[in-house]
Amino acid sequence: MKTFNETLSLTTHQPIELIDITTQIKDRVAASGLRDGLATLISPHTTAYVNLNEREPRLQEDMLRFLQDLVPRERDYGHNRVAVDGRDNAHAHLLGLFMSASATLPLAGGDLVLGTWQSIFFVELDGPRPARQVHLNLIGEA
């Protein structure tokens, strides 16, 4: 059994943003030389997440609008009055209740096992941010 670990660095530009990281993750899987096993992705942030969904521009616009409407940024949240980093980001933490910080995907024949329409997204809920990360851990056989 072999392992491979790498960190993907990202810069976000919008308050709420969906960044398709599928190609970057597939490239790192290919570079690892692993053929069969598991790929685990994790966002080490409390206001940014990993999500599998369809990459289609109108759907992505719908997703952004849904998130903005679900937990409006403008509400009076207690966390915003005492935020340790000075960011009014309670809405981002609350949206995170509906998301996962990690995803584990199978590897088969050197490829990620994804559905026809699935892409891997980094979901920023508290941007813009100059430095975000996704950790990739691969375990398997070459």
Rank of each mutant, 00 (worst) to 15 (best):
A30L: 12
N51R: 15
L41A: 03
T47W: 07
T47L: 08
P57D: 15
E56V: 01
D36H: 06
S32L: 04
T40S: 13
R28L: 12
H45W: 12
V50W: 06
T46M: 06
R58A: 13
L38R: 12
V29A: 06
P44I: 00
R58P: 00
R35V: 02
T46S: 14
R55S: 15
E56M: 05
Y49D: 04
E56D: 13
V29M: 02
L52H: 10
I42L: 04
T47C: 12
A48S: 13
S43H: 07
S32K: 06
I42K: 03
R35Q: 14
V50K: 05
T47F: 04
T40L: 11
G37Q: 09
L52I: 15
R55Y: 14
A48G: 13
V29T: 04
L59D: 00
N53C: 06
T40E: 07
R55D: 14
H45A: 13
L59M: 10
E54R: 11
L38F: 15
P44Q: 02
R28V: 02
E56P: 02
T40H: 05
I42S: 09
H45N: 11
Y49T: 11
T47S: 15
R58E: 13
V50A: 06
R28K: 15
T40F: 01
P44K: 00
A48T: 01
S32E: 06
L38D: 07
L59K: 03
L52M: 11
A31M: 08
V50M: 07
A30P: 04
L52Y: 09
V29W: 04
E56C: 05
S43P: 05
L41E: 05
A48N: 01
A48P: 03
V50Y: 04
T40A: 10
R35H: 06
V50L: 14
N53Y: 07
I42W: 08
A39H: 02
E54A: 13
A39P: 00
R58I: 07
R35L: 11
G37W: 07
L34M: 02
T47H: 10
L41C: 07
R28P: 00
N51Y: 14
P44H: 02
A48H: 00
P44D: 01
A48E: 01
L59V: 04
A48I: 00
L34D: 01
